[in-house]
Amino acid sequence: MGDGAGRASVCRQRTVKTIPITVIGGYLGAGKTTLVNHLLRHAQGKRLAIMVNEFGELPIDADLIEATQDNMIALAGGCVCCSFGSDLIAALRELAQMQPPPDNVILEASGVALPGAIAGTLSLLSGFVLDGVLVLADAETVRQTAQDKYMADTIKRQLAEADMVLLNKTDLVTPQELVALRAWLPQWAPAARVIATQRAVLDPAIVLQDFIQLEHVASGGPLQHVAGFETCQLAVTAVADAAEFARQLIQDNPGLVRAKGFVREAGGALKTVQIVGQRSEVSLAPAQARAGMVLISLAGDIMR
């Protein structure tokens, strides 16, 4: 038999630039497209690539569109929107060939797709790294859809696969209903942090880890303000094991939504730690990185 196994299995560490992908799931009408447009309007100079299953009636707000081709729309600020039809992998590989490549990919899954399955595949694709699974739920209809004769299990599986649930359109329900919804959601989305939104408006740093600013962490500069959330810095000097440190951080902070930073392991290596909901990812830190973490938590749930 071939000896390829031994050779290739060594290359685990990510040295080349990988593009983070956020998967956005949720049933029709939950606000996925609204969220995508919101992110495009607050791209802060980042080049976002939006992947949609199909170009619906209005996938992107008209004023953001610069040019339209067959399956690609060029958007303001160097962003793009592509439809991938049924060949997501080919579309992503094409995207990675763009010069320069996009900073972030946001994949808007179809209303009946299981975002966890998509995320599972994406995590195998070289050149990309999964940034998290965000599922939108329509506050007005989600409980009803979750009982639908045909869609119930699909909706519940979508929620169960979420790192974060955006409980959207909360302005359309009464405060009492919102309380009831918040009590109802965790049984179906046990792994997810739940964030209430209206018109899918929230700080992009919650959706995309690249928007978390680390520049000031080590220098003790001003803390990034993330509207509606509590942000704090953690001056971590050294940890035994970065992955274990991330697990502990998640366990100790039920309100933690996102965290990003660098920690030095006992062995001396500086590692990047990224957390979304209860998902963590550890990789080798870039050369110029300095130790320190930024934590973003649901207001009132800040770590002790």
């Binding site: 071939g2 390829g4 050779r7 290739a8 299995s9 685990r12 694709l125 070289s126």
Partner: peptide, 14 residues
């Protein structure tokens, strides 16, 4: 085969 896995970046642990 292994070569195909290697080309696709799938011949790895974890």
């Amino acid at each position: 085969n292994s070569k195909a896995l290697e080309l696709a970046g799938l011949l790895r642990e974890g």
